[in-house]
Lab assay of single mutants.
Amino acid sequence: NQASVVANQLIPINTALTLVMMRSEVVTPVGIPAEDIPRLVSMQVSRAVPLGTTLMPDMVKGYA
């Protein structure tokens, strides 16, 4: 089972991601792979992401 990136806190719209905002977790459906966490740092979210939400490619500007 592949771990995905999950929000560790509420991430407001247009916030630049930092390591403390993200954790890896095995979830369904699968989201952005956990190994991409270093690449996500400083990228902005395109919408508010609630705590515990799996990050999907369309939620991060410039990821897809």
Rank of each mutant, 00 (worst) to 15 (best):
M21T: 03
A3P: 06
E25W: 08
I37N: 01
T15R: 06
K61V: 14
I37Y: 03
S24I: 12
T53F: 13
R23V: 04
S4Y: 03
I13A: 11
Y63M: 05
L17S: 00
D58W: 12
V27F: 03
I11Y: 01
V5N: 01
E25Y: 09
T18H: 04
N14L: 08
L10V: 10
M59Q: 05
M43Q: 07
V27H: 04
E25A: 15
T18L: 04
M56Y: 11
P50L: 13
V30G: 07
A64L: 12
A64D: 13
P29N: 06
R23K: 10
D36E: 13
L51G: 13
L55D: 01
V6L: 14
G31R: 02
A48Y: 09
V6S: 02
L40R: 01
D36Q: 12
Y63S: 03
A7W: 02
I32G: 00
G52R: 04
S4E: 00
I32A: 01
D36P: 00
S24V: 10
T53W: 14
G31F: 02
V45T: 12
L51H: 15
P12A: 11
P57I: 06
P57C: 13
V27I: 09
P50H: 14
I13V: 10
L10G: 12
R23E: 03
L19N: 05
S42G: 12
I11A: 00
N14Y: 09
M21L: 07
V5M: 02
Q44P: 08
V41L: 11
P38T: 14
Q2M: 08
A34M: 12
S46L: 15
M43Y: 13
P50V: 05
V49E: 02
E35S: 12
L17F: 02
P29D: 08
D58E: 09
V30I: 14
L51E: 12
V5S: 03
V26K: 05
T15N: 04
I11Q: 01
P50W: 06
V49H: 02
M22C: 03
A48R: 10
Y63C: 04
A16C: 08
L17A: 00
R23N: 04
T28P: 01
L19F: 15
I32R: 00
A48W: 08
M56L: 14
E35C: 14
R39M: 11
V41G: 02
L40N: 00
P57F: 08
L17N: 00
P50E: 10
T53S: 10
V30H: 10
T15S: 08
D58I: 11
L17D: 01
M59K: 02
A3F: 11
G62Y: 10
V41M: 08
K61S: 13
I32T: 00
E35W: 10
P50S: 13
L40A: 00
K61Y: 06
V6Y: 02
A34P: 07
N8P: 01
R23Q: 10
Q9T: 11
A48I: 07
N8W: 05
V5G: 01
G52S: 09
K61P: 07
S42L: 08
V41R: 06
S46P: 03
G52E: 04
L10H: 09
V41W: 04
G31L: 02
D36V: 09
A3C: 10
R23G: 05
P33S: 13
V20W: 12
S24D: 13
L55I: 15
I37K: 06
V60L: 10
P12N: 08
V26H: 07
S4H: 01
Q2K: 05
M21V: 03
A16G: 05
R47Q: 12
Y63E: 03
P33L: 10
V41P: 01
V60C: 02
T53L: 13
V45Q: 00
V6E: 02
Q2N: 13
Y63L: 06
V60S: 01
L19H: 13
I32D: 00
V41Y: 05
T53K: 07
T18P: 00
M22N: 00
V27K: 08
V45P: 02
D36M: 14
S24M: 11
R39V: 09
N8D: 13
L19D: 04
N1Y: 15
M43W: 12
Q2W: 13
P38S: 11
V5E: 01
I11D: 01
T18I: 05
V41A: 07
Q44W: 11
P57N: 06
G52N: 12
L40P: 00
P33Y: 13
V27G: 03
V60P: 01
E35N: 10
S46K: 15
V26W: 10
N1Q: 15
L19A: 08
D58C: 15
S24Q: 10
S42T: 11
E35R: 05
V45D: 01
V60G: 01
G62H: 14
I11F: 02
L55G: 00
N8E: 08
T18W: 03
L51D: 15
T53R: 15
V30M: 14
A16N: 08
I11C: 03
V20N: 12
L10M: 11
P29T: 06
Q9P: 00
V45A: 11
T18S: 08
G62S: 11
T15Q: 06
K61D: 09
I11H: 01
P12Q: 11
G52V: 02
L17M: 14
L40D: 00
M59A: 12
N8A: 13
Q2L: 15
I11N: 01
N8K: 14
R39T: 08
S42W: 10
V6C: 04
V6R: 04
V49W: 02
Q9K: 11
A16L: 12
T18Y: 03
R39Y: 14
Q9I: 14
Q2R: 04
A34D: 11
T54Q: 03
V20R: 12
S4D: 01
M22F: 07
M59S: 08
E25R: 06
A3T: 11
I11V: 06
V26M: 06
S46R: 12
M22P: 00
S4G: 05
L17G: 00
V5T: 09
V49P: 02
I37T: 08
R39G: 10
L40C: 04
N1P: 15
T28M: 08
N1E: 15
N8Y: 05
Q2A: 15
V27M: 08
V41D: 03
M22W: 02
M56I: 10
L55S: 00
A16D: 04
N14R: 06
V49I: 14
V26Q: 14
V5W: 02
I13G: 12
P38F: 15
A3L: 14
T53E: 12
V20F: 14
Q44S: 11
I13W: 10
G52I: 02
V6P: 01
P57R: 11
I32V: 07
L10N: 10
V60R: 01
P29V: 07
L10A: 11
S4R: 02
T53D: 10
V45H: 00
L17T: 00
D36S: 14
V30P: 13
Q44K: 09
S24F: 11
